[in-house]
Nucleic acid binder design. Sequence first.
DNA 1: ATTATTATGGTAACCGGTGTCATAAGCGTA
DNA 2: TACGCTTATGACACCGGTTACCATAATAAT
Lengths: 355, 355
Amino acid sequence: MDKMTDTIEAFLSLRRKATINDVARLAGVSKKTVSRVINNSPSVHARTRDAISEVIARISFQPDPQARGLAFRRSFLIGLIYDNPNAQYIVNMQMGVLDRLRGTGNELVVHPCDWRSDDFIPELRQFLEHQRLAGVIILPPIAEDRRLLDLLDEMEVPRVRVTARAGASNQPTISGQEIVSHDHIGCAEASAHIALLGHRRIGYIGGNLDYPSAHERRRGFDAGLAQHGCAIAPDLDEGGNYSFASGYEAGQRLLTRPDRPTAIICANDEMAAGAYKAAYESGLRIPQDLTVVGFDDAPIADRLSPPLTTVRLPTRDMARMAANLLISPEPSTISHLQVDSKLVVRGSSAKAPNP
Amino acid sequence: MDKMTDTIEAFLSLRRKATINDVARLAGVSKKTVSRVINNSPSVHARTRDAISEVIARISFQPDPQARGLAFRRSFLIGLIYDNPNAQYIVNMQMGVLDRLRGTGNELVVHPCDWRSDDFIPELRQFLEHQRLAGVIILPPIAEDRRLLDLLDEMEVPRVRVTARAGASNQPTISGQEIVSHDHIGCAEASAHIALLGHRRIGYIGGNLDYPSAHERRRGFDAGLAQHGCAIAPDLDEGGNYSFASGYEAGQRLLTRPDRPTAIICANDEMAAGAYKAAYESGLRIPQDLTVVGFDDAPIADRLSPPLTTVRLPTRDMARMAANLLISPEPSTISHLQVDSKLVVRGSSAKAPNP
DNA sequence: ATTATTATGGTAACCGGTGTCATAAGCGTA
DNA sequence: TACGCTTATGACACCGGTTACCATAATAAT
């Protein structure tokens, strides 16, 4: 025992990064046995395991991911693939993934891409062929792209999709694991909230229909209103594309009508901010003259005056869950994890003005 | 030649990822020679090189980064290290780095961290020891952290700092490569712009003094005003911390005074948005009653009503340059690259009201 | 023509882990 | 005590590249 300690100290004085060979030598076993300990192989005697673990701790050995990856024929990198302009969303997702990855020896490789490009699939194929990723997480809207999913299947890359649409909807079922956000829950809360405030003439500014979220949210808003026997006025049903500009323009159209709405529901906060601008320019006060609600709880939501009533999705948690599906030791049989959105009431919603 | 083609086709029909051994066999040379071609070693006959390149192209061989990394004792990963709450800034930086990395076989590993944590340095040490990164890019404000820089030196990790402060200032010089943003240039333009509009009673809401940018920007604003013989009123000089809330509070203090300013300069857009809110609540119209300018050209800048006059930094270009310093083949002797900021005039600045 | 020099390619060992398979150790049973 | 059976460990080749060093062919000098 003393002799071993001596040798360890001799090793430490070298100030060199430890390898599996060092551990094997210092513990007096073969490197294969050390490898077994690292990988929690069952057939190692408890005594041996403890001795080796001791040495590993003393010389703070960490297996080299490159070497391990080479032998395993896969890396310890998780890829995050997306084409999404919402910076806060992306950063939240990254944080969530990293929350789960921290301490596991896996790292996060970010890979934004251009969905519209002809090169979209070839570029991703090259990326995936080059890096043998431990897994990838795909964010909306490209989580719906069949070509991408097929590519991942073909290359046998473990994947988790993040999406707003449950596989059960009109889309053909997509196999594999997914995190499904129930956008409609919070939306129903939000629109019910508006109905309860007495609004009956209600306008809508919708999201980009390429995004499943646009459909999910609309579904939720409709449901919440229906609960109270009301609905979005058909003549106040505007299409948008999730951008500030589209919200502004739709807002102008809605608010310059003689029979303008007393409340506007927006499929995201960006468009709600656009609606604010239109309201401001029309001389309408929020919430006295006009109620506005959004979706996302984006940073802009509480920068607006008054702060925006909106719906929040636990983005970071979703990312954590996605990462967990990829790296948790026992391959989960669960393929669909669902999370709910939630109404956040702030200052932009108030009782409908008396007629 | 035909025989070779046959063999290549035979190989292609295997649909297997190509290795250096395949290339060597198909080209009829040793793997060492292929390695020489991959690494642009000079002593390979042109004829040999062409033949090998041909095979490489035909079977679309790409050297495995894991194996290469193992032999080179370094990875092909660039780390981006930061502790910065500005999502748009982070995403822009990531995009810029990726712009440069695309096609080079290097990937981006993001590593946000917590500067205030006791674990800050140990955590990073572990990260760096574990992944033998090809290089790291450090963003403000932690690009100023001595401990971190010393750690990187000790571990001999190539690094590029992104900072607003030139090494020449009061801080002891920091060796190594850096991208220095000249925040003061655009700030001077902005404040000169205000002076030219006739404002003389000018308030200021400053940034977090832990950030070098806060000092740089102030320096620029002062210089621009001084050019026109004016200055920030000492009694209107408020401290902020770059947050919306701090801008709002400082704005309230400034605008509820009887001798309120006709213009407020903010060290970033978030605080400018806060000042907008304070102005709105005081019943002041922007820009008729109050001129506001910010810094960053954040997304919020043109969501505000009216759109904010601000200063833009070529964030993405900076990141591209930083990545370039790390991966360009010839190790650049240039250690300081400088970029300028630029005034963006929008609707929040106008002539000073007549007294 | 012969030797010295250079250009080029090959062999073997290595980077730091893993898989396969054979063997040694432990252990109840006859 | 001998026997098989299970469990624990080690030897060795391999993952896909690299460098160190040596051998040979081509070229220049004597």
